[in-house]
Design a protein around this nucleic acid. Structure first.
Lengths: 186, 186, 186, 186
DNA sequence: TGTTAAGCGAGACGGTACGTCGCGTCTTAAT
DNA sequence: ATTAAGACGCGACGTACCGTCTCGCTTAACA
């Protein structure tokens, strides 16, 4: 019955927050600063995003583009494309920084953990599709199960890049994929 | 001519910090709070640990116990033991929270990233040994390389438990190990 | 052509405001709070009372009862009755608090000062009547003038109770009145 | 054992606060503004004066100058001088505003009421002295008592100027003094 | 007897001040 | 010279109230 949250204000905040994050990192993305830059009142920011981190998360979330999942004809090609896409995103410090803060938040806030899980879920979709195609093509042992296969494919890359913070070369991608495909094949 | 930094004070700080972390999480582990709880002066804290996070890191670091790496006779048994140990540690919210905060810090501070990498390195030692034993026993293809193999073993568990926040059952451990061993075998 | 301001809403606001003032003091009587408690919309409050203090003033004003001015037959008896009435009102912290806030507002807002003066005027009426009766009875020197006499009568009581915050006994009232009457007599 | 509150910071805050009060009134004297103008941190202000009003009060308190009480040879002349001095002070909106706010605070905070009373006490000293001289000279009935006499002298002026907000002329001063002296004379 | 302008509740909005917390530095006295 | 204690400048946090503004809904006065 009352006035709805202004979509306009929301947009202004997110744009400002994104600009700040890109320029000076997530830590610079404070409520005060976003208020200053966006011209939106602090109060309003808190009305939209209950607290400081939510704002950052929303800003990041809003930055992430949708990823298509074209069929490249083979499991290997499909996985390769996905992995390279992942490398592109995760290569940025900003992303890792934000990701870490989300992880931390999720660890201490079950409520948030759910939202976080959904984000992840979305991110997994292409991989899931690729594996299902692989099963259809007879390249993946159907007994392994899509979820299991998914974690198995992701695993090495996540471990190396996200946790170990080490980048990986094209050649390494190929080596990893060789092993992955060998293990998944019937 | 002067007095050396007091080992006693250091211990008191670390104990206090650890108590706080265990009780209320890493975020509650502030310099002011540690000073209050330990009876050590803020100045002293800064003299021992250059800044707030170092203190937290030191406290965490001090908590981590050494892990032995007994030889169970087979690659599978060795990995299984390591993975279950990992599950025990990573199952705690506190650990994940601390881990996330370290990850975040590493993402925005290259200096810290090095220290972090060292910590990881230490943590990996048992795994590295197990894989080397596997190579010696002819269970692991020597061409794959220890580091690569290591990422493969860790990967699925890291991806599922640390990132996805989902716990895994004994059965899943076995399924993942099946895939891992298949991938690594000559 | 349109609808008049709802008398019902006005009543609800005033009742709520008065309840709040009685319970938690004038400072707690905010527009938001009155809106919450009364169920009346903020907009409506502003439509009825142009701003926050007006609301408070109106609420107070509505609380003040009319005072009769019966003729007790002598100047002394009339004044005594008025002074005791004054003591009854001004003895309450709430009244003094409200009064002080009105005084403050008046000091910085000439517009409000006029309204405030009117309120005072109303309060003075009984005193004025009593003095006029005194003149008629020959108890008061007509050359002094009603206004002057009025301030002179009020003065000691106002100074002691309202400004000095000290209560006065029945005996003190009599002492003060003795002196006042002595000074006013022809 | 620790560092004492800095006298220097205190001075800077008070000076800034006084400047603000003089320029824009008591309401403009906010913690944020004082911090801005004085260069002292907000935190420090709160360390010195527990809350916003304390600061204002302290600033005012610090402004009040000592008043001398010369002997003019007669009760009338002494009182006249004091009353005219009072008129000079109380004529300023700023003073009345501050005074009102102190009155309000006193009404709802007994703790503060005591401090306020002391301030008043100090302000009354000259008047008390004048009356005592009057008694000594035989101009004031000693039975009336100094305190009572004091309320009589103050009363009309307080009532008219402080409460009614109406200024008074020199002639009115004389008329009031006539009444007062008549009331107090033996 | 409709219109229709205004009142109404709800609550978002831009502001400004509040009081708190953590950081890392600095000062003091005591050991 | 190190310590405990804690003040200092800084700047973010989240909250409260202000007075204005949009929303639909309802209602009284006029046509």
């Amino acid at each position: 019955m009352a006035r709805p949250l202004s979509e306009d204000a929301r947009t202004k905040m997110l744009r400002a927050a994104q600009a700040i994050i890109s320029a000076d990192g997530l830590d610079a993305c404070t409520v005060d600063e976003v208020a200053r830059c966006s011209g939106v009142a602090k109060t309003t920011i808190y009305r939209h995003f209950g607290n400081a981190d939510e704002l950052g998360i929303a800003a990041i979330d809003d930055m992430i583009e949708e990823v298509a999942t074209p069929d490249h004809g083979s499991l290997r090609a499909d996985l390769r494309s996905i992995v390279l896409g992942f490398r592109g995103v995760v290569g940025h410090d900003t992303f890792r920084q934000v990701f870490a803060s989300m992880l931390g938040r999720a660890a201490r806030d079950p409520e948030f953990a759910k939202i976080f899980a959904q984000t992840q879920e979305m991110r997994h979709e292409p991989l899931r599709i690729a594996i299902q195609r692989g099963i259809a093509r007879g390249e993946v042992d159907p007994e392994i199960g899509v979820e299991t296969a998914m974690y198995f494919v992701q695993g090495p890359f996540v471990a190396k890049r996200l946790i170990e913070l080490v980048d990986f070369t094209d050649r390494e991608v190929d080596v990893f994929l060789d092993l992955v495909i060998k293990a998944l094949s019937p």
